[in-house]
């Protein structure tokens, strides 16, 4: 079918050609050109139709350097609301508790390992809690990360109650005077209400030790995900009151533009990005770099 062939050839040069045409389009007065090219760039970056429309509307009629305006607008979306204050990553309790949630395969366990290593390198005493009691060998996987990061791990056997693992881990973290407890959880799809209830239970159980727990709950989002990210952010936020996002796998060709769509609907700042499988491949989120990559 010629249709396939055309498309395949077209895709190869897609992005290279796009950016230069976008740069040309923002220079021109022709709003129609600008709209079309910009829409294409944004949608192919997974920004989504609605968020793309809003971004385009906000700059289309304005005076000035529109390339600048475009970047400013996107930075405003990323840095507004709860993202206005720079993230200090400071530990607010002893122990400070971080709860990681997300869909299957988004990278929670890897992120838990990287976070543990990051704080351990600062001389903090870190404990990992193996809250994924469902998936085969998830506990072993976290244990390997704990070893790499040289931190303790608390686990029960596979199939045990995740909330009880979390509770026991917090009890131990308090008793041992740990600085940070990171609770890994099983992957779950956000439309499975029973599994989301299980997550809410983990949160409730942690609160039995004190209202302040968990200090931070992060949704781990795979950068290759498209518009479903919005549903993920909304439903996980409903279930466990998220504090922010961690976007993983940004070292591929996916741009992670769906976080712009997410940020327009739910006020959740991005805190970290995952850029590789190594233990150091977790970076603080830099909005400027992100916007550059998205428009590049």
């Amino acid at each position: 079918m010629s249709f396939f062939k055309n498309l395949r050839a077209g895709l190869a040069k897609t992005r290279d050609g796009l950016v230069s045409s976008l740069k040309k389009a923002v220079q021109k007065d022709n709003n129609e050109d600008l709209r079309e090219t910009l829409e294409e760039v944004l949608i192919m970056g997974d920004v989504g139709v609605h968020a793309a429309d809003r971004i385009i509307e906000s700059i289309a009629g304005r005076e000035g350097d529109r390339w600048e305006l475009l970047q400013q607008e996107m930075l405003a979306i990323l840095g507004g609301g709860n993202g206005a204050e720079p993230y200090t990553a400071e530990l607010r309790g002893k122990p400070h508790v971080i709860l990681l949630v997300g869909t299957n395969g988004s990278g929670k366990t890897t992120t838990a390992g990287k976070l543990a290593a990051k704080y351990a390198a600062q001389g903090k005493r870190v404990i990992l809690a193996a809250g994924d009691t469902y998936r085969a060998a998830a506990i072993e996987q976290l244990a390997v990360w704990a070893k790499r990061a040289d931190v303790e791990v608390i686990s029960q056997e596979r199939g045990s109650d995740a909330a009880s693992v979390a509770y026991d881990a917090l009890t131990a973290a308090i008793a041992r005077g740990a600085d940070l407890l990171i609770v890994d959880t099983a992957g779950r799809l956000q439309n499975r209400s029973n599994l989301m209830e299980e997550l809410a239970k983990i949160r409730r159980v942690l609160k039995k030790h004190g209202e302040e727990y968990p200090h931070e709950t992060f949704l781990v989002l795979d950068a290759t995900i498209g518009q479903n990210a919005l549903s993920q952010a909304k439903l996980f936020h409903e279930a466990v009151a998220l504090d922010g996002l961690i976007v993983t796998k940004l070292d591929g060709t996916a741009k992670g533009g769906m976080i712009l769509a997410v940020r327009q609907e739910v006020d959740l700042p991005v805190r970290y990005v995952g850029v590789g499988e190594g233990i150091d491949d977790l970076m603080p989120f830099a909005p400027e770099d992100f916007v550059k990559a998205l428009l590049d």
């Binding site: 395949r8 895709l11 949608i43 192919m44 970056g45 997974d46 869909t103 299957n104 395969g105 799809l189 956000q190 439309n191 499975r192 290759t224 995900i225 498209g226 518009q227 479903n228 549903s231 591929g252 060709t253 996916a254 741009k255 769906m258």
Partner: peptide
């Protein structure tokens, strides 16, 4: 998301893909 085509074509260029498996379709995507 949109990156699916990049992934699929890149793999196809390196190894002869015979077909695909679509996972996590019990979600609301």
């Amino acid at each position: 998301g949109q990156d699916a085509v990049n992934v699929a074509t890149s793999f196809q260029e390196r190894i002869a893909i015979d077909g695909f498996v679509l996972t996590k379709m019990d979600g609301d995507a």
